[in-house]
Amino acid sequence: MSDNALLRFQGVDKIYKRGDEELHVLAGLDMAVNAGEFLALMGPSGCGKSTILNLAGGLDTPDAGTVTFGGEDIGALSDAGRAGWRSRNVGFIFQAYNLIPVLTARQNVALPLLLTPLGSKARKEQAERALRIVGLGDRMEHYPNQLSGGQEQRVASARALATDPRLLLADEPTGDLDATSAKDILDLLQRLNRENGKTIVMVTHDPAAAERAHRTLKLDKGRLVHSTGAAH
């Protein structure tokens, strides 16, 4: 394992219960993501890709093993501790964008900034800066239903960027987009990785999207079965 690891999974088990049945989604998973790396996770549905993102982002906790970020055990944090850690270190990009429909693009992007010490004016400026980075400087006061899918995903990307997190987690970010919009989003992610040094973990079913990453891990039944590319 790399010494440059920002995110590390060690012997991670994750079990979901459905009635009396136990579903072992991850079994003894070991993996590491280096700082500044763009990693793609691929595999069939139900193989545990999204579970890895959930654990990496502190949305869920492992049943066994540890998930560490910069050496800190995320699973050992309290709920509130994990919430604070997420707000400082992780940006999320979802397949369904998950924007708040009653807020404008700028207000959506400014939402996570409420959890920072920034004042009102600074939050507004930061949100506008993030929207300009994703090319939506002219759509700041639009509501999500006034934007195309690609634009919504760019707003979601701006929201993920707004707090300047070290880690971006993208769960099938191009899954709902047409080819042109998908390309724009992948270009954006690649730019954020290269120019801003963001560490990115992206779940995708699209081999073309995975090609943008430094490294691709393939999973099956909760285990890593294949790796292509080299750690950054």
């Binding site: 709920d79 919430a83 604070g84 400082r88 999320f92 998950n98 939402l111 409420l114 959890l115 929201r159």
Partner: peptide, 15 residues
């Protein structure tokens, strides 16, 4: 509910 999930994901606490 989904909005609540998003807010919690962003770091807003239960409280």
């Amino acid at each position: 509910i989904q909005e609540t999930g998003v807010l919690k994901t962003l770091g807003f606490t239960k409280g």
